[in-house]
Amino acid sequence: MIRVLLADDEPLTRAGIRAVLAADPEFEVVAEAENGRAAVELAAAHRPDVALLDIMMPVLDGLAAAAEITRTVPATGVLILTTFSAAEHIAAALGGGARGFLLKTGDPRDLFAGIRAVAEGAAFLSPTVAHRVIQQVSGDRLASAARARRLVDELTPREREVLALVGAGLPNAEIARRLHVVEGTVKVFVTSILRRLAVANRVQAAIIAYEAGLV
């Protein structure tokens, strides 16, 4: 069971998301908040696996709440679910500690996949915005495509294969299914890839995969 905190200032939006999650017994909404400050307090009280936050909320916005939850309840992964996809919102969310970014207009399957990935400790970008995000962030955070290709060339063929799937936004469990290996093996590969690429997380690794042409 993946325990979820849902924070959005629109009651109808919360009801809709709750109904979507209720369709899968893997998920349980353990608390709901209508502003960012309440989300921070409920995260501390309930210790959910994932905090699903909108950006535009009163009292404390979702970006500030994400940073506060990441600082005070590090075991809770933060996933942003919003209608706002401007570069500054994406950069602020990921820079503040959020592990994922989804659009409310996306496929409900993206919501399920994103929550699972963040609960596993991975990062997740909605496939519908992944390329846009990578293009927006890569210019500021990582080196050129030529450097990315050099880094990728130093990986083993199997590591490059795993990196391509990470770049496509797949969580470890799905990568394991596609490669016909156990999930623990994928985690070992991902750890090795992050170390060899000298990056801090899967989002940065995904950017390198995109720059190098793997995605």
Rank of each mutant, 00 (worst) to 15 (best):
R3C: 02
L5W: 08
D8T: 03
E10S: 07
L12I: 03
T13N: 04
T13D: 01
I17G: 01
I17Y: 05
R18D: 12
V20I: 14
D24Q: 06
E28F: 00
V30P: 08
A33D: 10
N35G: 14
R37W: 01
A38W: 07
A38V: 06
L42Q: 06
A44C: 03
A45E: 12
R47D: 02
V50K: 09
V50S: 06
A51T: 00
A51S: 10
L52I: 00
D54H: 11
M57G: 01
M57K: 04
M57P: 00
M57W: 13
P58G: 11
L60T: 03
G62V: 07
A64R: 02
A64I: 05
A67R: 07
P74F: 13
T76R: 02
G77A: 12
T83F: 15
A87C: 05
H89M: 07
A91W: 13
A91R: 13
G95M: 07
G95D: 10
G96I: 10
L103T: 13
T105M: 10
T105K: 13
D107R: 13
D110V: 01
D110P: 02
F112T: 06
G114N: 09
R116H: 07
R116A: 11
R116T: 11
V118C: 00
A119M: 09
E120R: 08
E120K: 12
A122Y: 00
A123P: 02
A123R: 03
L125A: 07
T128A: 08
V129I: 11
V129G: 03
V133L: 00
V133Q: 08
I134Q: 14
Q135K: 14
G139A: 06
G139Y: 15
D140C: 10
R141I: 05
A143S: 04
A145T: 14
V152E: 05
D153T: 10
D153H: 13
L155G: 00
T156N: 04
T156R: 15
T156I: 03
P157V: 03
E161I: 04
E161H: 05
V162W: 04
V162F: 10
L163A: 07
A168G: 07
E174Y: 09
R177M: 04
R177E: 06
L179A: 03
V181A: 14
G184V: 05
T185L: 04
F189C: 02
V190W: 12
T191W: 06
T191F: 06
S192T: 09
S192R: 10
S192I: 01
L194P: 00
L194E: 00
R195E: 11
V199L: 05
V203D: 09
A206E: 07
A206I: 02
A212K: 13
A212F: 14
G213I: 05
G213V: 02
V215W: 12
